[in-house]
Design a protein around this nucleic acid. Structure first.
Lengths: 343, 343
DNA sequence: TGTTAGCACTCATCATCATCGAGTGCTAAC
DNA sequence: GTTAGCACTCGATGATGATGAGTGCTAACA
C-alpha cells in the first residue's frame, strides 16, 4: 500500500495530537482539527489503512489510535520541522560558573533538563588516545611521596605513595628521570607487562614506587576512557504517566539514572554512530537495547570541544516526547557550548 | 496521666506491629500477640489513654491505631534494643575497590542502601582546618605550567596555568621557593589580601602565575569545606507507599537526592549535634526542617577517619522505618570503616 | 477497682451492576 | 471517492450493598 500525501498528513495529525494529550486520538478529532476537511468516516478508512501499514495501532477495540514505534520513526525522520531554537539562558548560567569543568557540566545538564522538562544527562569529554606527557615524584613528608601524572589534554592524576623511610633527593631525581624516559609518549595499551618488569628492575629497591606510579598513570588514562556522566531531572520521570505507571519500572529507571548505569552505553552508542558533529540522534523504544528504557525515547547529540575532546548530551523521555522542542533546545545548547569553547 | 509499664508494652507492641505491616493495628491483634494476656477490651481502654497522651492516633474512626511522631520518638529513645549488628560484606566490597576515595565512598553508600533497603547518603570527609603543605610548579609544555598544591590530609589539587612563553627553569625554581616559603603552613583564612599582594610583588613579572596558584590553593581548601555527597538507592523511595503516594512529593525527594540539595544540611546538622563519635542520631518527621522530608525519618552517624577527617553517613526512609535494623547496619559499617582506616 | 463479654455503630474496602460515551467497522446512498 | 447512519464494543464512571475490622460504651464479674 502506498503512503499518500493525505495519509502522511493524517498520521502527522495523529502523532501531534497524541504527543500533546497522551490519549488515543479518534477519527472525529482529526476531522475537526486538520485543514483536510474530511469527514470522520473518511478518516476512519485512512486510519484503517495506516494501521494495516503498522504505523498506528489501537490499544483496544473501540479506542482511538496511537502511533507505533515505526510511526514515531517516520515522524521523526520526515515530518519534524527541525525545531525552532529555544532561547536558553546558558550565558546567564555561565556567568556565575565556577571555573571547574565539573560544575560547568552540572549546570549545562541542569539547564537541559529544566528547558526540556525531561531527565537529561551529559558525559564529560573523553580524550581518545591519552598519551602520557609528564610524570613527577615529590617528597611531601618523610614517609609520603606524591606522584603526579599528566596525560594529553592536560588531564592530571595524582597518587600518594607511602614509604617506610625518606628517599634521598638524588634517588628521587633518578626515579623521576627513569619514569619519564620510559613512559612519556606512551598510551595505556603500549604499557606492556614486559615494560613494567623492565622499569621495576631498573628502579631496583624502589620498584614498588615505580609500580604505584605506573598504576596511577594507567588509571589516569583509563578512567577517562570510561567517561564521567552527570545527570539532572531524574524526578521528572514521575511526571510522565507512561514511565511512572509501573512503580518497578520507574524505580529501575531512576536507579539507572542515579548510578549512571546504562547511561554509559548510550554515550558510547552516540559517539560511535555519530557520523557528523552536531548531528542529533533519536532512538525510539527498543532501538535502545537497555531493558529499563524499553518504552522510552532517547535523544542524543555529540559535542566537540576541539582537540578530540568529545562528549555526549542526552535527553530521555517517554516515546510521546516533544521531539521538536527537545531538538531545538539541544541545538541551542550545542551552539552555545561551541561558542563558549572557542575562547 | 502516667505511662505505666503496661502502657509502654502496649505502645511498643503497636509500633513493632505497625513497622512491619504498615497497617493501623487494632486492639485484637495486640491482645493476641503479646504475652500480656489481656482481652481486646482492656487493650482498647489502654489505647484510648495512649491516644489521649498523644502517642498514637487513629487515621479515621473505626480504624486501628498508628504511632504519632511523639510515639516514634519515645520508641526510638527508650525501647530500641540497639540493633543486633548485621553481617555486612564490606570486606568483600573493599577487596575489589579501586584505590580512590571516591569509589570507596560510592561503594560504602551502595552497601548501606542495599543492606537497609532505604535511600542512603554519605559525605566525603571534611578537613577541618586544611593547611597548605606543599606547592609545586612544573613546566609541562612550552606554554603550560602545572601547579600542584597539597594540603593537610594529603588532599591534592592541581591547576593548569597558560603562559605566553616558556619560563626558564631558574625562574620556575625561584617561584617555587617563593610560594612554598610564603604559603606553607597557612590555612585559607590566613591568606589575606595583603599577603597576596606581597607575593605578587615579589613574583614580579610572573605575578599572574602566583595569583593562579594561590587561587587553586584557596579553592583546594575551600572545596573540601563544602563536602561532596554520594547517594545510592533513590529508587527505593518508590518502594514505600507513604513516600510515593503523592507523585509530587516523591519527585521532590528524588530531586533533592539527585541534586544533593538539602542533604548538605543534614550532614551539617549531624556533624554539629554529634557529641560523641559513633553516636547515632535519629530525626523523626519535622524534626528535620526540610520540606521534602516532612514525613520521613533520617538516621545519621558520624565517622572519623582520624586527623580530624569527619564525615556523615545517613539513611532516609519513611517514619515507619526498621530502626533496629538500620542502626545495626550502620554500627557495623562504622566499625568496618574504622578498622579499615586504622591501616 | 480492674477486667471482660457483649453489642451497637462507624467506615474503608471490595465486588457487582448499570450507565455513558467515545470510538469503531460496515453498509448504503450520494 | 466521500459521507451519513447505525449497530456494536469496551473502558470509564458512579451508585449500591455486603463485608469485616475496629471502636466506644455499658453492664456484669472477680
Amino acid at each position: 500500500m502506498e503512503l499518500t500525501e493525505r495519509k502522511m498528513k493524517i498520521l502527522q495529525a495523529i502523532i501531534r495530537n497524541y504527543l500533546e494529550s497522551g490519549e488515543p486520538v479518534g477519527s472525529r478529532t482529526i476531522s475537526k482539527f486538520t485543514d483536510l476537511h474530511l469527514s470522520s468516516a473518511t478518516i476512519r478508512n485512512e486510519m484503517s489503512d495506516l494501521e494495516e501499514m503498522g504505523l498506528i495501532r489501537q490499544p483496544h477495540t473501540s479506542a482511538g489510535r496511537i502511533p507505533t514505534d515505526a510511526g514515531y520513526r517516520l515522524y521523526v525522520d520526515n515530518m519534524l520541522q527541525g525545531g525552532q531554537e529555544e532561547e536558553t539562558s546558558l550565558k546567564d548560567v555561565l556567568l556565575e560558573r565556577g571555573d571547574r569543568l565539573e560544575e560547568l557540566l552540572q549546570q549545562v545538564v541542569r539547564l537541559l533538563s529544566t528547558n526540556t522538562n525531561y531527565p537529561s544527562m551529559i558525559s564529560a569529554p573523553v580524550i581518545r588516545q591519552g598519551k602520557i606527557k609528564f610524570i613527577q615524584l615529590s617528597q611531601i613528608d618523610p614517609t609520603d611521596i606524591l606522584g603526579v601524572v599528566v596525560i594529553e589534554g592536560n588531564v592530571v592524576r595524582s597518587t600518594m605513595i607511602h614509604v617506610d623511610e625518606p628517599l634521598e633527593s638524588k634517588t628521587l631525581l633518578r626515579l623521576n628521570m627513569l619514569l619519564n624516559n620510559a613512559l612519556c609518549g606512551l598510551s595505556t595499551d603500549e604499557i606492556t607487562l614486559g615494560l613494567v618488569q623492565e622499569i621495576k628492575q631498573q628502579a631496583g629497591e624502589h620498584s614498588e614506587i615505580a609500580q604505584h606510579v605506573i598504576e596511577a598513570a594507567a588509571e589516569a588514562i583509563h578512567s577517562d576512557t570510561k567517561p564521567r556522566i552527570y545527570t539532572s531531572g531524574a524526578d521528572k520521570i514521575l511526571e510522565y504517566p507512561e514511565l511512572a505507571e509501573d512503580n518497578a519500572k520507574a524505580g529501575r529507571l531512576i536507579g539507572d539514572f542515579e548510578e549512571k548505569k546504562n547511561l554509559a552505553s548510550i554515550v558510547q552508542e552516540a559517539l560511535d554512530s555519530d557520523d557528523q558533529d552536531g548531528d542529533i540522534q533519536v532512538y525510539i523504544g527498543n532501538e535502545m537495547p537497555m531493558a529499563s528504557m524499553q518504552n522510552c525515547s532517547v535523544v542524543t547529540a555529540t559535542y566537540d570541544l576541539g582537540g578530540g575532546m568529545k562528549g555526549t548530551i542526552g535527553v530521555i523521555g517517554p516515546k510521546r516526547m516533544d521531539y521538536d522542542r527537545v531538538i531545538g533546545v539541544m541545538k541551542q545548547i550545542m551552539r552555545q557550548l561551541d561558542e563558549l569553547y572557542k575562547k
